[in-house]
């Protein structure tokens, strides 16, 4: 049996006395598109922050390709092949769009902390960055400061930065939050395109996005996963309907 891309065992997290994540077991195999859904305050973002090393877990283990991530800093986890985006747009606003993408290529192309290379002299960096810009349709914006892009463009750039390093596990935190319908369609297509052959873990509110994109879905309610499975199974699960989907679907109609 192959090692799962991401495996969580008995993962728990407390802030003071409040337990936010209350024992999560989850296994995501390589190449799978996995969505985590759940009502507000279910702990989805906390779960993301635990996996990516932003917060330390209280107990339990997180394994990336079989390696325990306990005690590792975000940059170390990133170097092992896990990359994430943020719920709140998190780019480098004063740098140009091109520069944003180029910076996210530096480590994966082996530049580390070198101060004897000129970045503008590397063809691989320039072409790699332009290729990413092409994928996220921002080629025409390359020279602008990232901070002046429209919201949807910034989100696209965020996804570009996330995938640029060539990580094979991509985690997206609400990639379509706050977007119009057409913008959402655009981003969903983009995600589909750039995460081909990669493992995708995403938190999402928009049901249309989740059911269209994900191979499997986990439903997180009050820090516990109450169901995991293929979209149609999860949709039919009475527990899920009671806890979450019913309310959400009603609200949509």
């Amino acid at each position: 049996m192959t090692v799962p891309a991401l495996q969580l065992d008995g993962l728990r997290k407390s802030f003071g006395k409040t337990e936010i994540i209350r024992g999560i077991d989850l296994s995501i195999s390589a190449g799978e598109r996995h969505a985590v859904i759940g009502p507000n305050g279910a702990g989805k973002s906390t779960l993301f922050n635990l996996i990516t090393g932003r917060f330390p877990q209280t107990s339990g283990t997180i394994r990336l390709h079989g390696h325990d991530l306990k005690g590792l800093a975000p940059f170390e986890i990133n170097r092992m092949g896990l990359s994430r985006s943020f719920q709140i747009t998190n780019i480098f606003p004063k740098m140009s769009v091109f520069e944003n993408v180029r910076c996210s290529l530096l480590w994966s192309q082996g530049y580390k902390y070198s101060f004897w290379n000129m970045v503008s002299r590397s063809r691989e960096l320039t072409e790699g960055a332009m290729e990413i810009l092409d994928q996220i349709n921002l080629t025409s914006r390359a020279e602008l400061p990232a901070g002046v892009l429209s919201y949807a463009e910034q989100r696209a750039l965020e996804i570009g930065i996330t995938i640029a390093g060539g990580a094979d596990v991509i985690m997206l935190d609400e990639p379509t939050a706050g977007m119009s319908h057409s913008e959402t369609d655009y981003i969903v297509e983009l995600i589909r395109k750039v995460t081909e052959d990669k493992t995708l873990v995403m938190v999402e509110h928009d049901m249309g996005v989740v059911f269209g994109l994900a191979d499997r879905i986990s439903v997180l309610v009050y820090g516990e996963i109450i169901a995991t499975g293929r979209p149609e199974d999860v949709r039919g699960d009475p527990k899920v309907q009671e806890a979450y989907l019913g309310a959400a679907l009603e609200a949509e109609h």
Binding site: F75, N78, E99, W107, S114, I161
Partner: peptide
């Protein structure tokens, strides 16, 4: 113009994001 010089700008703008690009701020 070097990688570490470019990343200095990135860390200035957004240290947390830089960490998720593989660089220790």
């Amino acid at each position: 113009r070097t990688p570490v010089g470019r990343m200095a700008n990135a860390v200035r703008d957004n240290p947390e994001r830089a960490e998720f690009l593989g660089y220790s701020a």
